[in-house]
Each structure stands twice: as C-alpha cells, then as structure tokens.
Design a protein around this nucleic acid. Structure first.
Length: 637
RNA sequence: GCCACCGUAGCUCAGCUGGAAGAGCACCUCACUCGUAAUGAGGAUGUCUGCGGUUCGACUCCGCACGGUGGCUCCA
C-alpha cells in the first residue's frame, strides 16, 4: 500500500500521512470542523465527491454547504432527487437534463402529458420521503458503451443521445436508491443533506433548446442551505413583486394596456407621458451636446426600399405591411433607412464625417405573442436611435464616444450594467476583413475605456458584430438596452460614399446604436429600479400642495401660481379632507415633495415641505423652495 | 409560436362538488374645518373577458378566440 500525504488548504497548512483513504476520512483526520456541513471537497483544486479515494499526495479543501460551490452542488443534487421522485410517481417518464441554476435547479422530462402545477405538491412530498431515507449518492465511472447499454435498456433515449454526443471513452453515473443518472458530479454525500427546497413552477422547454425538437416538461425548484434562507428568498420575490412595473405603472397613473386595443401596445396616461417627455427632452439635449443632428423618418416606407435594405429578406416575419394605391408599404421596424437616404442626398467629403443622425423613432415589430412582457417587450416602441457614418479610421473613436455616452447616461440613472460583445454568427454577410476590423474596433474601444465584458460567440447580427448593454429588472432578469452595432451592409446596399483626401470615392463605415434602447423598456426597468419613487428631476409630479383647512386655500393658490411660473411640475390638493389622508395619498403616489400649507404658513407666507421619507424641512418661502428644487434638478437628483 | 397558470365592480380579491353575484378600498351625497400614511354616516356600482357547446339551469363543466403572468424558442 502506497502512503499518501494530504495537505489541508486553509489558513494554517496541516498535513497528514497514511494509507489510502476517502477524502472524507482525510478531512476527519485533519480535524476539519463542521464536517456535517461539508458537501464536497476540492482535490488539488478540482471539485470531487467526499467518497473519492485518495492514494497519492494531494491538497484538500473542504467545500461547505453555504459556499457558492456548495450551494450549486446542493441544488444539482436536489434536481436528481426530483428526477427520482418524478420517475417513481410517473412510470414511463423519460429524464433528460437537470442542472443547477441561480437560486435553484430544474429538470426536463418527457412524459405522455405535460406536468401541471397541481403535480408539484405530490412530487415535493415524494422528494421529502427520499430525503428522509437519507440515500447515499454513489458515483462510478463506466465506459460510454456500458452507459449506453444501460440507458437503452431503460428506454432513456435522451441519455443515449447525450452520451453519444459526448463522444468520451468513459462517463460517470450517479446512483441514489433506485435512480441512476448520467452526471459529471460531484454530489452531496446523501439525500439527507437537503433540507430546504421548494418546487416553484412548470414550463415547457424544447429539447436542447431547439424549437424543431420535442417540447419537454420542465420543473423548476429552488434550494437553500436552510429554511431561513429559503424564507428569505421567498420574501425577496415578494419584495420584487412590489416593484413590478406592470403593477406600479397603472397605480401611479403612468400607463396601461387595453384588451380592446391589442397585445403589446402601450397607452401612456398623463403622468407617464410626462415622464417620457422628460426623458426624451433630456436625450435630445445630450445628443446635441455630443455632435448628433436630429433626423426624422416616416413610419411607412415602400416595400421596395425594405427589399433594397435587406430587411424584407431577413426581417419580414417581424414586419407589418399594407397597400396604399396598389403599392406595397412596410411599417418601419428600424429607423435606419431614412438616415441612409439623408446621407446619400448629397456628396459628402471626408471633412463632413462623422455624420451622426439621431431620431426618437417609433417602430413596430411583430413579436411572437408568447414573448410580450409588460413594457419590456412590446410591439410598438420608440428607440433613441442614431446612425453614425464615418471613415473606417474614425470607427474606434466613435465607438469609444458611444461607450462614454452610455456610461454617462447610466451614471445619471444610477444603473449598473453588463457588457457583452457578440461575434460573427454562422449565417452572416460581409468579408472576413470587415468582420475582423469591426470586432477589433469594438474590443479595442472597450479595452481603451477599461471596460469588462463577456464574449457571446456567434451571437452578432447577420450584418455585423455588436456590443450589448444589459440592465436587470426587479427579478434579476437581464434586458438589452443600449447596443452598438457595426454594419457593413447598409452603406454597401445604399451605395454610400464619401470623397477622400485623394479625391476618390470611398465606402464609409457605419454604426447603429441606441443608448436607452427602447423608451418603453427603459422606463419599465426604471420604474423597478426606483420602485416608482423617481428622483425629483424625473418625477412627473414633483410636489403637491396640501392645505390643512379651507382657510389656507387662498394662500395655496398663490403658491400654486408662483411654483408653476417656476416650471415646477405641481399638483394641488385643496379638498376639505384631513391632512393625514392627503399625506397618505401623496405618499402612495410617491411624490417627492408635499408642501403643507396651514395657518402657520399663511401667517409667515411660506410652506413646509415634507419629504417622501417622512422628514419635514423647516418652513420656507416659495422662492427658497424653488431654488432647492431647481438645484436638485440641475444635479439630476 | 410552444408549455403551464390566470381573467369576477375602477383597484385588490372571496365565491365548495352547477341552483337568483360578494367584501375592502376607490367613487357619489351629507356632516365634520381638521397639522404630517385612512373622520363618520348613507348611496350607486357588474355583458362574472368574448363567442359557442353540454345542462331544466353555467361565474362554475367543455371547446375556440382575445388578453395577461411564468418559462422555452425567437429578438434587436
């Protein structure tokens, strides 16, 4: 027997020597504390089961249940328990895949009927039995051939397909009780380690994410270290629901949708229309500051033109068409065409470049019914769209300029964001040189700006690579807002040129970009971001005057005029109601300032502001209040 | 588009296995003139999303359509 040496990777290095033993035994001998909460172990940095035999010199690090990796293992093991429960309850079900995801796990099944919400409690109950039985998870390595034969014998076609596609010599199988699954592992030592889980939802999911393959039945669950954590998670979801823009929007009088108008169409009520107006005005100013010019194209353009641009070929399914005087027209799903024509309307010199055309352009897209989602995915929306046409040499600088723009704007709205670069997809047009140039321009610009980014291999548009900026909603779902896309097709198709220093015609480069993306989507996320309590500069109603009694109405009216003259967005609540009620209602509307006007204020010709957080400011004059609020807006707070 | 769930008063929701539609808030009227998250009393409110079907009888069961939510796919 070969002696083994084990180091414990911890603050103080400990060491033992001895014969072959399991990782668990080694940790035990090393005197690791809290072994009952250790789910796995890292052997020389690799995650492994606690039962792994050690027969050489290694370094060990225990993985605790409450660590990121520990929770992932717990969640993955819970998905195996669920698969076992489902197999016991629904004979004939075929298992497919079941990974750990954020906060939980899922498992996809193929069964004679889709699973329903009602099935969940039965499955949970069966899972609790399995957990109570404390079945050990045992892993073993077998040849792919053996594994294939095993799953074929069980009629588990999906597993056979997975093993075949893996193409490995050996694969690992994990068994707990009567259930064996193909799995990389590791797993918790036994099912008894799972003590806080819940099945949350059922959903359809295509096998291997391909809509041409069978629709499987997916069950989602969450799992945590203990019940307390699980409860906290549930509370987190409830809190997120309070921020839900689809609920807050109508409550705050911002927008609503109507069954009778149609899906994916937003109706902006006065306060929401005001909010849009504030944002749009802000955007126009910011664009003009940065050398953009305003442009505006029509909504209906001849189908012939969409043909020329390639949209008819590549984007037809998302477009709406109509006939006018026996001519076919398409409603614009993008704003680029008119901008191309504006550029092409005269001869351009390299001295004119870059041209930056900005348009708050309203577009219509036929999104499939199942993807519509509140304000975040709609069929009519307005983009803060711009097209930058420049020389290839200017590309890098222009991209940096847009990245700076994005950063400045996101700072003002207090958003954190993630960046992704998407590279050439399989189906694409343009030369390799163009693609390399553009991807390089994007990457260099990101690196020059010291920005972190992920790469989405093959996820670019068919006409060019792109940088996407993603914001998160209240539930942590990511939504694309800003995007910066290089495009080689349109300058080509529209034969855009500029005259270079050499007096020759050259093809310009083009960037298609949005900063907020769609105003609708952005406002949706903005509502959740601020939970409806907009900072003063954005609030559609900045202040409301609340009279204490009817005696204060004349003074209140004077204040109303003075503040309105100062362009403060104002409401007046002069009703003969108790102050407490008026405060409550203003509070529920999340208005930044309540201006209390009673006898005291009348005597001293002022007002007493109450902030949304309940704090009172000292009695002040209208002038003082105007100064305060103007300063706040100037600082965009 | 696919899978699951849902649609009852302006809003939030109750309404069991089919037997004459309910509550709270909001709204309207009256009284109260009141100092920081709900004053009191009274009143009105419905195509139970729509259309078909089953049934003596449908908010309830079935089918289809419309709309929404959570996923999948798609998508900039």
């Amino acid at each position: 027997m070969k002696p083994v040496t084990v180091h414990l990777k911890a603050k103080e290095v400990q060491e033992i020597q001895g014969g072959p033993m399991s990782a668990y035994e080694a940790l035990e001998q090393l005197g690791v504390r809290g072994l009952d909460r250790v789910v796995s172990v890292k052997i020389d940095g690799e995650l492994a089961d606690l039962s792994t035999q050690i027969d050489s010199q290694v370094e060990l690090k225990p993985v605790y249940l409450n660590s990121k990796e520990g929770l992932e293992i717990l969640r993955h093991s819970t998905s195996h328990v669920m698969a076992m429960a489902v197999q016991e309850l629904f004979p004939g079900v075929k298992v497919t895949i079941g990974p750990a995801i954020e906060d939980g796990f899922y498992y996809d099944f193929d069964y004679e009927r889709p699973f329903k919400k009602e099935d969940l409690s039965r499955i949970e109950e069966k899972m609790r039995e399995i957990i109570k039985a404390d079945l050990p998870f045992t892993g073993r390595e077998v040849t792919s051939q053996e594994a294939n034969d095993f799953f074929k014998g069980l009629g588990e076609d999906y597993k056979v397909e997975l093993i075949t596609d893996l193409g490995a010599e050996n694969v690992k199988l994990y068994t707990q009780g009567s259930f064996t699954d193909l799995c990389r592992g590791p797993h918790v030592p036994s099912t008894g380690m799972i003590n806080a889980f819940a099945l949350t939802k059922v959903a359809g999911a295509y096998w291997r994410g391909d809509e041409n393959r069978p629709m499987l039945s997916r069950i989602y669950g969450v799992a945590f270290e203990n019940r307390k954590e699980l409860k906290q998670y549930m509370r987190r979801i409830e809190e997120a629901e309070k921020r839900n823009h689809a609920r807050l929007g109508p409550q705050l009088g911002l927008f609503s949708t109507y069954n009778e108008i149609g899906a994916g169409m937003i109706v902006w009520h006065p306060k929401g229309a005001m909010l849009r107006h504030i944002i749009e005005e802000f955007e126009i100013r910011e664009h003009l500051k940065r050398g953009y010019e305003l442009a505006k194209g029509p909504s209906l353009l001849k189908t012939e033109l969409w043909n020329k641009s390639g949209h008819f070929e590549n984007y037809r399914e998302h477009m709406y068409f109509t006939d006018i005087d026996e001519q076919s027209y398409g409603i614009k799903p993008m704003n680029c065409l008119a901008h191309m024509l504006i550029y092409g309307s005269r001869i351009r010199s390299y001295r004119d470049l870059p041209k930056r055309y900005f348009e708050l352009g309203t577009v219509h897209r036929h999104e499939r019914s199942g993807v519509l989602h509140g304000l975040l995915r709609v069929r009519e929306f307005t983009q803060d769209d711009a097209h930058i046409i420049c020389t290839p040499e200017q590309l890098n600088n222009e991209i940096k300029g847009v990245l700076d723009f994005v950063r400045d704007v996101m700072d003002i709205f207090e958003f954190d964001y993630e960046l992704e670069v998407s590279t050439r997809p399989e189906k694409s047009i343009g030369t390799d040189e163009d693609w390399d140039l553009a991807i390089n321009a994007l990457k260099v610009a990101m690196e020059d700006s010291h920005l972190q980014y992920d790469i989405n291999e093959g996820d670019g548009a068919f006409y060019g690579p792109k940088i996407d900026v993603k914001l998160k909603d209240a539930l942590g779902r990511k939504w694309q807002c800003a995007t910066i896309q290089c495009d080689f097709t349109l300058p080509e198709r529209f034969d855009l040129v500029y005259i270079g220093k050499d007096g020759q015609k050259h093809r310009p480069a083009m960037i298609h970009r949005v900063i907020l993306g769609a105003i609708e989507r952005f406002i949706g996320i903005l509502i959740e971001h601020y939970a409806g309590a907009f900072p003063t500069w954005l609030a559609p109603v900045q202040a409301v005057i609340l009279t204490v009694t009817d005696r204060s109405i004349p003074h209140g009216e004077g204040l109303l005029r003075a503040l309105e003259d100062a362009d403060i967005r104002l409401e007046a609540d002069f009703r003969n109601e108790k102050l407490g009620l008026k405060v409550r209602e203003a509070q529920l509307q999340k208005i930044p300032y309540m201006l209390i006007v009673g006898d005291k204020e009348c005597d001293r010709e002022g007002l007493t502001p109450r902030l949304r957080n309940g704090q009172n400011l000292p009695l002040m004059s209208a002038k003082e209040f105007i100064e305060r609020i103007s300063e706040e807006c100037k600082q965009r707070r």
